[in-house]
Design a protein around this nucleic acid. Structure first.
Length: 872
RNA sequence: GCGGGCGUGAUGGAAUGGUAGACAUACGGGACUUAAAAUCCCGGGGCUGUAAGCCGUGAGGGUUCAAGUCCCUCCGCCCGCACCA
């Protein structure tokens, strides 16, 4: 064959991108009669430039979208921007740029980058969440939720940075200090807006069972996050005291069966009764103040020792009025779970035991482990939390734990403290309402007005959107909206008197909680067009990082229900299929000063343990470090633009899909991307060889015998690649494509010496098929090959090839023959051969006969067309 | 602590309970070349000199005609949540 000119992605890729755009290949119509299919990848935050994680995410989604299109679906595959957020404000502070200008400039850059990857997005549906057209509808949703009773306002603790005068998220508090100012963070009570997600705790939990196209891991994480537990709310009567007028303390417990082991009561430092005691008791006051100083920074909580202070109060044991229990304030009791107070049973709860040991409280075992001797059993430093039989517990004695729980619940349910039942069975959830208030500029304004006369007044629909002012400054700490000279001063919509606009903006998680619905009608006046939303949703396949497994997905599930309640759509679950992709990782490199070095600046030599790295510019030795997620801070990043420029988008896409299962991390390597590039050229060469063969003189003889085998390979590959794409096993699909390519290349080589019309026809079918099945992954190369082969139209519009069922089955099959489960040889039998035939063939196999040595086998297992196992 | 996942050649990884290591990468050998690159072909889990054979999917046990796959115990690594009573 004559040498083939190399495929040049730099020329071919932009050409096909223009062609798709001109033909509006991926613009989707809502009234298309074909069955709808909605593929969505998590939209990016416009941080500046796309990174390899995006390349991986969008490559996967694009394969599925293109494949489903080829299978005859009307595919919705949109893209937008999660564009509000703190980095824009930080950039404003650092560089003086305006958040809006910064964000839209980033979007322009990233859009261009995404377009260079040849992704089949319907760009006519693009929006950014910071577009007033988007956040106007979000404000409308907020007001509808407010009207429907799904929004509430309450006081809540926040991390307050006294220097920056701002609220910090938990992850912005490092060692109890603000991440930017370094100031000690304080706890402050602030009145904030909340979405009542907890109204849906049970529904959100139950519905997880139906999400069978979600990873189990994600469902489990959500289950734990919702954190349902059944228990008893229980009243303890206070021993009358001059310290308080209160008469009882309410606690929540999931272990009412251990009531006879109770030895103290502990109140949260935030408990109202604790506050009351603290007013008169300096010791308690000091304890509570110290607790508040320590803050909610997670590390401090985790390491904190169990500590408490005695209040001077005591309560009566609810069954044994002769016993009293001391009441403490303890640092490990949470105010916002259960009743903000507990009874401590040290023998059967580790925290209570730690506390009891520290303060010398009784440890009374009341659950006897199976087989333990009641005379001998005692609790040391390890609380016993396992199953067992209740003892030392009067009428509960002898009952197993679960039975004792219901028995004691009934007992307390019948008794009264005052006019209330002493015990009430109750279900508790860990899930809290979703606080959405942020004291920030670059977010969606909360559309309410505070009037002295009329309180909270919703902004009337006609006044929406509440636009962010452009003329803000970031030179002062605090919320720029609050400093703005005029923005917040508005008349009350009811009385017209001077009132104050809400200056808090919404958590950016709100923006991403409904964007998937907006894509179904991105230009509508209302948040959605319900008929369209109902037709497209739920998203058939959602793809994104596992870091959003809890919050984003849970909030979206809540939003879908809230939008159903307010008439914006009519479904429960937004995402039918969910897939969490792995990260892109890379080796790290450091120079002799310990500074991180970019992979692009490093030269690598050798292999295995002998690998060496040097700085390309100077030859300075470089230390090769661990393999970690690509991050700017460790500089182990590879710029997608650079890769597209050097190898082309198709190679980047192919490599992202080929090397690892999509849910696992993939390691970016130079060798890997070069392998992709080599494959690209092989396909191109194969197509060129094919064209040359077709144009040459061929003997009119029938196809060679192996043409039949080739056709089988072709059709089996159609089947397996389709199945693998459907199952999102892209790496397996790639492997099968390699096998086909290897088969075709070898076959083409044999035709070279003996060209035959039949052989060329078989090869042509195979090559065309190859071009079609690589199209979802390497769409540009596929178009170039398609055109070179003289096929009409574009591959992007071609139907997926059909596997001929007749070619998927073989006439005969090679099956393994085992003796006692060990493989001893193989035989070839016709498919569906009768048992007798298979048995005879197997027994006549030399090693089998030798091992049998004349004896009769005791058993012969035959799995037709699979395996024979001769048991001696 | 609780929950989830993973552990297979030099490396990434394949394998509805049915021939372990597909496919790729790296490596070695060969062809082509003045040479190199590129390309093409061949090789490869370990042990026993070859063959026959034996061993082999983190370790140990079990279920089964048959286990990488199912069950139990343990070890290691990764991820998530974490004082939720």
């Amino acid at each position: 064959m004559k040498p083939v000119e190399r495929y040049n992605p730099r020329v071919e890729e932009p050409r096909w991108q223009r062609a798709w755009e001109e033909k509006k290949s991926f613009v989707v119509a809502d009234d298309d009669p074909r069955e709808p299919y909605y593929v969505l990848e998590m939209f990016p935050y416009p941080s500046g430039r796309i990174h390899m994680g995006h390349v991986r995410n969008y490559s996967m989604g694009d394969v599925l979208a293109r494949y489903k299109r080829a299978r005859g679906f009307n595919v919705l595959h949109p893209m937008g921007w999660d564009a509000f957020g703190l980095p824009a404000e930080n950039a404003a502070k650092q560089t003086g740029s305006h958040p809006k200008a910064w964000t839209y400039a980033n979007i322009d850059t990233m859009r261009k980058q995404l377009k260079s990857m040849g992704l089949s997005f319907d760009w006519t549906r693009e929006f950014a969440t910071c577009d007033p057209e988007y956040y106007q509808r979000q404000q409308k949703l907020f007001l509808d939720f407010l009207k429907a009773g799904l929004v509430t306002r309450k006081s809540s603790k926040v991390n307050w940075d006294p220097v920056d005068e701002t609220v910090l998220a938990n992850e912005q508090v490092i060692d109890g200090r603000g991440w930017r100012s370094g100031a000690l963070v304080e706890q402050r009570e602030l009145t904030q807006w909340f979405f009542k997600i907890s109204d849906y705790s049970e529904e959100l939990l139950i519905a997880l069972d139906g999400l069978n196209e979600w990873p189990d891991k994600v469902r489990t994480m959500q289950r734990n996050w919702i954190g349902k537990s059944e228990g008893l709310r229980l009243l303890f009567e206070l021993v009358p005291s001059s310290l308080t007028s209160a008469t009882a303390i309410e606690v929540f417990t999931t272990r009412p069966d251990t009531i006879f082991g109770a030895s103290f009561i502990a109140l949260s430092p935030d408990h109202p009764l604790a506050a009351e005691i603290a007013r008169a008791d300096a010791g308690v006051r000091a304890f509570i103040d110290e607790f508040h100083r320590q803050g909610t920074a997670t590390e401090t909580l985790e390491k904190a020792e169990k500590q408490g202070v005695f209040t001077g109060l005591s309560v009566k044991h609810p069954v044994r009025p002769d016993r009293t229990l001391p009441v403490y304030v303890a640092n490990f009791v949470l105010m916002d779970y259960g009743a903000g107070a507990i009874f401590g049973c040290p023998a059967h709860d580790q925290r209570d035991l730690d506390f009891a040991r520290k303060y010398g409280l009784n440890v009374i075992p009341v659950v006897l482990p199976p087989g333990a001797d009641p005379e001998d059993f005692s609790v040391g430093e390890q609380a016993y939390v396992g199953p067992g039989t209740i003892y030392h517990s009067e009428f509960l004695d002898g009952l197993p734990v679960e039975a004792a729980k219901s028995e004691i619940a009934r007992y307390f349910g019948e008794r009264r403290v005052g006019n209330r039942p002493q015990g009430t069975v109750e279900t508790q959830y860990r899930l809290r309402d979703w606080g959405i208030s942020r004291q920030r500029y670059w977010g969606c304004p909360i559309p309410v007005i505070h009037c002295e006369e009329h309180g909270i007044v919703p902004v009337p629909d006609k006044d929406l959107p509440v636009r962010l002012p452009d003329d803000v400054t970031f030179d002062k700490p605090g919320n720029p909206l609050d400093h703005h000279p005029s923005w917040k001063h508005v008349p009350c919509p009811i009385c017209g008197r001077p009132a104050r606009r809400e200056t808090d903006t919404m958590d950016t998680f709100v923006d991403s909680s409904w964007y998937f619905a907006r894509f179904t009608a991105p230009h509508a006046d209302a948040p959605t067009v319900p008929a369209r939303a109902n037709a497209w949703l739920p998203v058939d396949q959602y793809i994104g990082g596992v870091e959003h497994a809890i919050l984003h997905l849970l909030y979206s599930r809540f939003f879908t229900r809230a939008m159903r309640k307010t008439g914006h759509l009519d479904l429960d679950e937004p995402f039918k299929g969910m897939f969490t992709q792995g990260m892109v990782v890379h080796e790290t490199y450091r120079d002799r000063n310990g500074e991180w070095v970019l992979p692009a600046d490093v030269t690598l030599e050798g292999m295995g343990g002998k690998r060496r790295a040097t700085l390309t510019a100077t030859g300075e030795p470089i230390e090769i470090g661990s393999i970690e997620k690509m991050s700017k801070s460790k500089k182990n990043v590879v710029d997608p633009d650079e890769i597209v420029r050097t190898y082309g988008a198709d190679c980047a896409r192919w490599f992202m899909l080929s090397d690892s299962p999509p849910e696992r991390d993939v390691q970016w390597t130079e060798a890997g991307i070069e392998g992709a590039s080599r494959f690209q050229q092989r396909v191109w060469k194969l197509v060129q060889d094919m064209i040359e063969l077709r144009g040459g003189a061929a003997a009119p003889q029938a196809a060679p015998a192996d043409a039949a085998a080739l056709r089988k390979l072709v059709h089996r590959t159609i089947k397996s690649v389709g199945d693998n794409i459907e199952g999102l096993r892209f790496n397996s699909a790639v492997a099968h494509i390699y096998e086909l390519t290897n088969g075709l290349t070898r076959f083409a080589a044999t035709l070279e010496s003996a060209p035959s019309a039949g052989g060329i026809a078989a090869l042509a079918e195979g090559v065309e098929t190859l071009v079609q099945i690589i199209a979802p992954m390497m769409p540009h190369l596929a178009e170039s090959c398609w055109a070179a082969l003289g096929k009409a139209g574009m591959v992007a519009d071609a139907r997926w090839p059909e596997a001929d069922p007749a070619l998927l089955v073989d006439d005969s099959v090679v099956i393994a023959v085992q003796v006692n489960g060990k493989r001893r040889g193989e035989i070839t039998v016709p498919v569906g051969a009768p048992r007798e035939h298979t048995e005879k063939e197997a027994l006549s196999l030399e090693p089998v006969a030798r091992m049998l040595d004349g004896r009769a086998p005791s058993k012969i297992i035959i799995v037709p067309d699979r395996i024979v196992n001769v048991v001696i």
